[in-house]
Structure formats: structure tokens, C-alpha cells
Simulated assay, not measured.
Amino acid sequence: MRKIRGVPARAGSPLQLLLLACSFALAGYAGVRLLDDDWLGVALWFVGAALLHDLVLLPLYAVLDRGVVRAFDAAGHRERTMYVRVPAALSALLLLVWFPLIGGQVDRRYRMATGLPADGFLGRWLLITAVLFAGSALLFLLRLRPRPTSRLRRATKDRPPAVH
């Protein structure tokens, strides 16, 4: 039996292998259906999206993240970075996925495909972003306040072991 980092490696169970094969089959079917109509357009979209992400977006949010880390580091609270990172990342992911609708660029196509109006996506995204940051701030405040049992724990910790 081979070992990987000190842990014996073993083959997956038959159920895992079956689920993996089914997921590959489903992904293959979706790919065939997607490429059936306009394979060149889809391929160009994937290449363009990969290039846009790797050459423009990744450096942009790396610089923004570095700025947030430096700001918290300068204040001496680097551990609080996650309270900004998580809501910002989720908001950016929503913006990236729904950008055409948030930007109002596909109103006619969206209405023809779904029969629904495409307005309101910008307001909803802003509301979701505000809720994400407000929830993060609330979690930060809840974790910042002292816990009522902390004095009791400290007193128990300071007692000699025989008293426990």
C-alpha cells in the first residue's frame, strides 16, 4: 500500500467511483449540449473570460486585498481582515456572475428568454452587498464583546489541579 504524507492511500469506494463517473458523464453531456449551437462563440467566451480573469481581475483584487491587509496591519488588527474579505469576495462573486444583468446590458435578450423584466438587479445586488457587510459587522461586534463566562473560566484555570 502506498503512503502519501504518512497516510496510507487507498482506492475510493465503488460508490465514490460511480458518483465520479456520473459527474463526468453529466459534465460531458452539458458540454456537448452547450457547444452544439455555437461552439466557436462558447470557446471564445471561455478563453476571453480566462484571460480577463487572469490578466485583469486577479491582479486588481490582489492589490485591493493587499491594501486591506496593510490597513489592518498598520492598525495592529490583522486578524480582523476576514471581516472585510468575506463579504467583499461574496459580493464580487455575485457581481461577476450577474454582471450583464446588474449592468443592464442584456435587458431585451433576458426579457425575450424569460418573459421577466431585467430591471432591479443593481438594487438587489447593492442590497445583498449591504446585508453581507452588515452581517459581517454584527458578527465582529458579537465576537468583540466579552463573554460572561470568561471570568469563571479564568478563575477555574488559575486554581490548582487538586481543587478541580
Rank of each mutant, 00 (worst) to 15 (best):
R5N: 09
G12P: 02
A118P: 02
L55M: 08
V42C: 05
L55S: 06
R70K: 06
R85L: 13
L116D: 04
A11Y: 11
V97F: 03
F133P: 05
R66T: 10
A92I: 06
R143G: 07
I4T: 10
R80Q: 15
D36Y: 10
R159V: 09
C22R: 10
L142R: 07
P117A: 07
P100N: 09
D107Q: 10
F133Y: 05
P161S: 00
L116I: 11
G103W: 12
I4F: 06
A62L: 06
L101C: 05
S13T: 09
L142T: 03
L142G: 05
H77A: 15
L58N: 08
P100S: 03
L55H: 09
V32A: 14
L52R: 04
G6Q: 06
R10D: 09
L64G: 01
V63T: 12
L144R: 09
L40C: 08
L34C: 02
V68P: 04
Q105I: 14
L44F: 10
A92V: 09
V69W: 05
L64K: 00
L93P: 02
L26N: 10
V163H: 14
R143D: 03
A89L: 12
I128T: 03
Q16V: 14
A118S: 07
D158N: 13
F46I: 04
L152Q: 14
L60C: 12
V163C: 12
R2F: 13
F72R: 00
L55E: 05
V97Q: 10
R124Q: 15
D107I: 11
L144M: 07
R109V: 15
G104A: 11
L19Q: 04
L34M: 01
D73E: 15
A74G: 11
G135E: 01
P160E: 13
R151G: 00
W125V: 02
R85K: 14
L55P: 00
P8T: 02
R145E: 09
K157Y: 13
L138D: 12
A11H: 11
L142K: 08
L144K: 11
A21Q: 06
